[in-house]
Design a protein around this nucleic acid. Structure first.
Length: 679
RNA sequence: GCCGGAGUAGCUCAGUCGGUUAGAGCGGGCGUUUCAUACGCGCUAGGUCGGGGGUUCGAAUCCCUCCUCCGGCACCA
């Protein structure tokens, strides 16, 4: 047990929350949750960076005072995160007065140490980048900044410089003795070679604008945004007497006390070079520097680089509303190896959701709860026999392995790895259900055996709910609710990581409440994809026709998340009256009937319908039903019919309602001609 | 131009100090079970391990070279 202080970068308010910032913040929240789970005292910080020329100008453009302008954007960030189930302990703003006071003090310490001097500097300055450009970097004609395509300005001004050059050797020595300071390894090498290449003094003040923290004793100058911004990680913890100071441990810090800055690779240098240099200069000792600067990669979206236009077209909050927060979080954490660049691919997202969450975990929960409903009165079985048989061996082995690997994945800032092993445990449990076959034991009257099996499965499910909680807290708790368990609770000093199987809860009532992760079938998948990545034109059109759906159904099932559709969308569905000509049971497929249905075409259609539990084949012949006729054909495997093996391909769908053992058919109340269109 | 990293099955990637038939997940294909969310389980990928050359008894794994991609640096910070 220890302390875990984790930060996101503070986000510059020249932009609103987008997929990239959401990604960083989700990962940090997941790390925070994991450390809470293992009993650490945690503190998560995020916030906004609000000073600088760029902001001053943006405010002016909108006719606002800078503070009023930043108030608005900052609020958007603060309000966004809870919608992604991110619970930061503090949201800092660089315009907070205590932050400003802290930075002023920091400046004075650096100055007292003799590391600041006044000089002059001249260069091409790009407002967008907040930085100087070399002539080579500018595009001609017009001295355009390559990134912003805007003209750079030739500036010459008096400036304070920080003697960064004094810190080259100290930093190198520090990196040497703290191999984990910069992660991942490849980034560390980059920084190392950068620093070895020589450090020049850093201009740390500006006189060309006033929206910033004034330099003490020389208010014509405001501090360079990075000097101001980096200090937030410390200023957020308050003054000397603040209780939060403990999160920034000093000399006596132990192995288990960590200060971790998660940053994008674009701002790594500021964090890995400037920040420790500033701290050393201000009198902080090596032991008082942060422990880990973890640089993550950038996301592409469906293989495309996230330019500003694309970025703005992908609103993480809207994604969360459409897909469910947990699906979004899961994808961010599972699909992208943390530290590397990754692709946020919408198709892969749905595939991943179906495979991992739907089929592997969700269905496991569902089948185990189903078995308990039938075999143990819907309760956790009482006093199960606990002697294992051979069937248990792989499960126990996997359990130990998976929980250990997942734990070390989280410890090593590798959520993707942790979740991979979490899934392997679910997979192993699914296998165990098959091997142990409680239904067979039940038929043989071995009720003790049945209880043993189900008890074990329930315990694995509980463990899974814990292991998933850092990544998908809301769904993990829903899962627990179905298992009859209270929401996840954490407590400082106590690890809840399920290193050994959770205790039994004999007699505790289960509360199944339907699929936890309803999978997307082919049509639903297509519909969701169309919604998430609409062609630009279609998006604009859709926007005009239907108002955006409110984002309150964040955790709703896909079926509900569909929201409203336009009439045009509805009109795409071709519903027709069909007359059932023949019907027969499909051998070896309990639920399936093979129908031929006249929908007004030359030949009756072959339709496979899952009606067998509710209808005898002969009861359907001659009935008028409602058929979706333009659904893509779907395969149902193959079966032997009339002595021949045939592929089962359905060319339509009958509309019906109810559970599969008690279905009601949608029908039509008169003898309409087969093929009549419904509207 | 310099310095890194990467290029392995359709996709995303693992491959430790060089060593038996190159692996996993997903998708696809085939089979199978019925407790379950048309779900689970089993089988299935015949991939010149980017190209070429070399070292070695033996290389995806070491060396050289070329190609492609990404990142960092390049009299800017």
């Amino acid at each position: 047990m220890g302390r875990f202080y984790v930060t996101t970068p503070i986000y510059y308010v020249n932009d609103v929350p987008h997929l990239g910032t959401a990604y960083t913040t989700v990962v940090v929240d997941a790390l925070r949750r994991f450390h809470q789970l293992v009993g650490d005292e945690t503190f998560m910080l995020t916030g906004t960076d609000e000073h600088g020329l760029k902001i001053e100008r943006a405010a002016k453009a909108e006719g606002l005072e800078p503070k009023a302008f930043t108030d608005g954007i900052s609020a958007r960030f603060r309000e966004a995160w809870p919608k992604l189930d991110i619970e930061a302990d503090k949201f800092i703003r660089t315009t907070d007065s205590d932050h400003k006071a802290f930075v002023t003090e920091l400046w004075k310490k650096v100055e007292a140490n003799g590391d600041l001097y006044e000089g002059e500097y001249e260069g091409w300055y790009c407002v967008g980048c907040e930085s100087l450009k070399t002539e080579k970097e500018l595009e001609q004609p017009g001295n355009l900044c390559a990134t912003h395509k805007a003209p750079a300005e030739l500036v010459k001004e008096s400036s304070y410089f920080f003697k960064l050059s004094n810190y080259q050797e100290k930093l190198l020595a520090f990196y040497e003795s703290h191999p984990n300071f910069i992660k991942p390894e490849s980034r560390r090498n980059e920084v190392l070679s950068f620093v070895r290449g020589g450090l020049r003094d850093l201009s740390v003040s500006r006189t060309t604008f006033s929206w910033g923290i004034p330099v003490p004793g020389n208010p014509k100058h405001v501090m360079y945004v990075w000097f101001d911004a980096l200090a937030n990680y410390l200023s957020a913890l308050g003054g000397e007497e603040s209780d939060l100071k403990k999160f920034w441990p000093t000399n006596d810090k132990s192995e288990t006390e960590q200060v971790v800055h998660v940053v994008g690779k674009d701002v790594l240098r500021f964090h890995a070079v400037y920040w420790p240099a500033f701290l050393l200069s201000a009198g902080y000792k090596e032991s008082e520097l942060p422990d880990v600067i973890y640089a993550h990669g950038f996301l592409t979206v469906d293989g495309q680089k996230m330019g500003k236009a694309l970025r703005n077209s992908i609103d993480p909050l809207k994604l969360a509303a459409e897909l469910g927060v947990d699906t979004l979080r899961y994808q961010m954490l599972r699909a992208i190896p943390f530290g590397q660049d990754g692709d946020f691919n919408h198709e892969a997202l749905l595939e991943r959701y179906n495979a991992d969450l739907g089929k592997n975990v969700g269905n496991l929960l569902s089948r185990v709860l189903g078995l308990c409903t039938k075999m143990t009165d819907g309760k956790h079985p009482a006093d199960p026999l606990d002697s294992g048989t051979e069937v248990e061996v792989p499960l126990f082995k996997d359990y130990g392995y998976c929980t250990t690997e997942a734990l070390s994945g989280w410890m090593a800032f590798a959520p993707h790895y942790a979740l991979e092993w979490t899934m392997k445990l679910a997979n192993s449990a699914n296998l165990y259900v098959d091997r142990a076959a409680p239904w067979t034991a039940a038929k043989n009257g071995e009720s003790a055996r049945v209880k043993t099996i189900l008890s074990r499965l329930l315990r694995v499910l509980e463990a899974l709910s814990v292991m998933l909680w850092p990544a998908i807290p809301a769904k993990a708790n829903e899962m627990r609710a179905q298992l009859g368990l209270p929401p996840m609770e954490v407590s400082v000093g106590k690890s809840h990581w399920p290193t050994s199987m959770p205790d039994r809860h004999p007699g505790l009532a289960l509360a199944p409440s339907g699929p936890l992760f309803p999978t997307y079938d082919e049509p639903a998948r297509k519909a969701m994809l169309a919604k998430l990545v609409p062609p630009a034109a279609a998006a604009a059109a859709a926007e005009a026709v239907s108002p955006p759906v409110a984002g309150s159904n964040a955790s709703a099932a896909p079926a509900d998340a569909a929201g409203t559709i336009s009439y045009d969308d509805f009109a795409k569905v071709d519903l027709r009256v069909g007359l059932v000509k023949t019907a027969e049971k499909v051998p070896k497929k309990d639920k399936l009937l093979l129908l031929t249905v006249d929908v007004g075409e030359a030949e009756p259609r072959t339709i496979i319908a899952g009606l067998a539990l509710s209808f005898a084949p002969e009861a359907l012949v001659g009935r008028r039903v409602v058929v979706v006729t333009n659904l893509a054909p779907r395969e149902f495997g193959s079966a032997e019919i009339g002595g021949k093996k045939v592929k089962l391909v359905s060319h339509g769908m009958l509309l019906a309602s109810g559970p599969s053992e008690d279905l009601r058919l949608a029908t039509i109340d008169a003898d309409c001609a087969p093929g009549s269109r419904l509207k």
